[in-house]
């Protein structure tokens, strides 16, 4: 099963490699991982998208908690939450593709954020499914490169990771 795990940890060098090392060391899956500073600059927040059965996910959460620098771990999948991913995709359309691209950008409510003589860079954000759908809709022959952030997420309502 797919799980989104939020990790609040001390913003210190080496903390990221402790987390990624844990996943490789224990053979846990890691589909994507995003990390950045929070509003409190001493803390980083990491979102890990992983797959596994309940026992594996339980171990992942426990092993993450065991890392000394980890302040809090929360499995977002088990609660009401919002999740997003952002993708930049650069395409080099021929003339006949151009219209189709503009239509797709409209349909998927994304943006063309950079245009050069021969290329467009499109920004799209949303759930992973939407991003995959957009990628599938594009003519693969014109895709030059893709950069995705991986999933990030936050719980809904009054609940917060530290409260």
């Amino acid at each position: 099963m797919r799980h989104i795990i939020s990790v609040l940890l001390e913003n210190e060098t080496g903390a990221l490699s402790r987390v990624s090392g844990l996943f490789s060391q224990r053979g846990f899956n890691i589909e994507s991982l995003t990390v950045a500073e929070t509003s409190d600059s001493s803390l980083s927040r990491m979102t890990i998208f992983s797959t596994g059965n309940d026992r594996v996910i339980e171990q992942i959460v426990k092993q993450l908690n065991k890392l000394i620098e980890v302040v809090k771990v929360s499995d977002l999948t088990s609660q009401d939450h919002v999740e997003r991913e952002l993708m930049l995709v650069k395409v080099c359309p021929t003339n006949k593709d151009e219209l189709e691209i503009k239509q797709l950008v409209d349909i998927f409510s994304c943006k063309i954020v950079d245009v050069t003589e021969k290329t467009y860079t499109i920004e799209i954000s949303g759930k992973t499914k939407k991003i995959n759908a957009f990628l599938n809709a594009l003519n693969s022959a014109i895709i030059m490169e893709v950069s995705r952030t991986g999933v990030t997420g936050i719980s809904r309502g009054k609940k917060a990771i530290l409260k």
């Binding site: 026992r55 339980e58 171990q59 426990k62 092993q63 908690n65 065991k66």
Partner: peptide, 11 residues
Amino acid sequence: IDPSQISKNVV
């Protein structure tokens, strides 16, 4: 003492 040991091998 270590929560990660519990239900790791045997539930």
